[in-house]
């Protein structure tokens, strides 16, 4: 049942991010700022997905860093509140209006689930802390295929319509190849799967022509030559995929990726937001964070506070438009 959490987002605002880092140093008075965080309060960390997923690994990596460097004075209790593609966990956080001691990590479903279901909350409702990274996709073909590079791939796809597999339908796995194909001028049929495992075996069994996926989950198969990477959707290719062009490199930049960030309940106290923004600035400087980014092949993309909220709103609107066009949502 533990379906792979949906993933997506948009971004590529690295340049902006750099400029924005100092922006939300808020106006909280020192007296109030000292009140938060109180060492007596337990931080209630909601992980809106099951253990072992991308969201879980991110939350636990951050908590480890917080503990190791003593960045948070009180206890941190992390709970997996999975269900309804994140609706349960984030609904739980939403209900803690005004509380500064609830916190959660976001992923693609943070934007897509409200588009699919009647959640009482929208992504912009929460108090934004920071966008920390984006998760991008790699387009791969079977290692036995004659297609050696992305130029051949596009040329071939223009001749014969192809199939591309991905996980889920209302998410970035669908949107990335759709936008890319539009830019590159080829057509394809999208085949949606419940999990990365199923789509990978489908590609290995030669049922599919290609698929998109998070590089981290298929690096083993890429290293062994069983899968051949064609193109990467992020701004810069991770070290593990050296030599693979980005979509931007070949002139078909699509500007979509999945946001991995941190949020507080709606209307959380300003000093809580300030504290977490300052704290996350320290977290992203640690070697452990670099290790997390590289071992999960993420793209570091940092945005703080209201910039993150604007980013979420834009992402949601962009997605809504594409999904409505193809009839995936009403």
């Amino acid at each position: 049942m533990d379906k792979t959490e949906t993933k997506f987002g948009r971004g590529l605002l690295g340049a902006v991010a750099a400029a924005v880092v100092a922006a939300p140093l808020a106006v909280a008075t020192p007296a109030i700022a000292q009140d938060y965080p109180s060492a007596d309060e337990t931080l209630d960390w909601t992980i809106a997905f099951g253990p072992g997923g991308g969201n879980d690994i991110m939350a636990r990596s951050i908590i480890e860093i917080l503990n190791k460097y003593d960045l948070y004075p009180g206890e941190i209790s992390a709970e997996n509140r999975a269900g309804g593609s994140g609706a349960v966990g984030w609904g739980y956080l939403y209900a803690q209006d005004g509380n500064g001691y609830g916190i959660s990590t976001t992923s693609g479903s943070f934007v897509t689930t409200p588009l699919q279901a009647d959640t009482p909350w929208q992504p912009e409702d929460f108090t934004p802390v920071a966008l920390l990274a984006t998760d991008d996709l790699v387009l791969v073909v079977n290692g036995e295929s004659d297609i050696q590079n992305i130029d051949q791939f596009i040329a071939n796809a223009k001749e014969n319509p192809i199939t591309i597999g991905g996980t889920g339908s209302v998410n970035v796995d669908f949107i990335v190849p759709t936008l890319f194909a539009k830019r590159a001028g080829f057509e394809f049929d999208y085949v949606s799967f419940n999990s990365m495992s199923e789509q990978t075996t489908a590609l290995l069994s030669n049922a599919l022509d290609a698929m998109v996926g998070n590089p981290g989950e298929i690096l083993g198969l890429i290293d062994s030559g069983d899968l051949r990477p064609m193109v990467f959707s992020g701004t810069s290719t991770p070290a593990a995929l050296e030599g693979v062009p980005t979509m931007g490199d070949i002139g078909y930049d699509i500007g979509v990726s999945m946001p991995r960030g941190l949020i507080l309940p709606p209307n959380a106290p300003e000093e809580a937001q300030t504290f977490w923004i300052e704290t996350m600035k320290k977290v992203v400087e640690t070697p452990e964070w670099d290790e997390y980014i590289s071992s999960n092949t993420l793209t570091p993309t940092v945005l703080y506070g209201d910039e993150f909220r604007t980013f979420l709103g834009n992402t949601k609107n962009g997605f809504e438009t594409v999904l409505r066009e193809v009839g995936a949502i009403e």
Binding site: G83, S85, Q116, A117
Partner: peptide
């Protein structure tokens, strides 16, 4: 298609 079937808008029935 990504469309909900008999979920009645409930997030818990999405899956």
């Amino acid at each position: 298609t990504g469309q909900g079937r008999y979920t009645f808008g409930s997030a818990e029935l999405i899956g």
